[in-house]
Amino acid sequence: MLELKNIHKTFNPGTVNEKTALCGLDLKLNEGDFVTVIGGNGAGKSTMLNAIAGVWFVDEGTITIDGDDVTKLPEHKRAKYLGRVFQDPMNGTAATMQIDENLALAARRGKFRSLKKGITAKEMAYFKERLATLDLGLEERMTTKVGLLSGGQRQALTLLMAALVKPRLLLLDEHTAALDPKTAAKVLETTQRIVDADNITTLMITHNMKDAIAHGNRLIMMHEGRIIYDVSGEEKKNLHVSDLLAKFEEASGGAFANDRMMLN
């Protein structure tokens, strides 16, 4: 359903800060895939997600979603295909707006925004129902400003918003990395539940190798702007963190002792 072909992206070309972030990246996702993405800092994981989301245009290559070529589609137009959750909990919601208003914005993703009412009574009832599935009591606080919620609550709400209109593809960019371990575990659990409920095709970046093994049916490892390891099915289920570490060492020539990956 998603197909990346020979994607290249270089930031600040021709300057001292030139950085090749993606370098001939190829990836093909099947309908219903839940793919976890791991890799060291600067491997190009977030860059890949941003390329898919259209935060900027790629230098070379094509991106197709369900057969539609979206390579030249601006970010806000690509949004109709995509649900996104970011690393920073502040990023995925409008802090100065209410919970119900945020959901109403998400309910209109990919649709034309007219002069009709921004939120209807029928929607309110539906939102309440959906919020209750998060089990955070947010359904009783629908008119609370999102800025007053905790990071974990905001990430859970962002997840709900991303899946409110079923996306063709869900992009999760280390969405639990800024949370404390207990909250992170709960948000991850919510993620799994939402993905399973609608069988959503998902790309999830994580720094936690255990999570990368435990979730999803496929795992890819990135290094220097390319995919260096792609494993799925039974083989993935039998993976151990030590296997991944060995793969890493092999790829980076053993020079990743200081990498953040080690901390997990």
Partner: peptide
């Protein structure tokens, strides 16, 4: 609402398909 969202968080707004 889309205008208010733009002023509040433009990253989120674009992710929700707002120009």
């Amino acid at each position: 609402s889309a205008i208010r969202a733009t002023g509040s968080n433009h990253n989120m707004s674009r992710a929700q398909g707002i120009n």
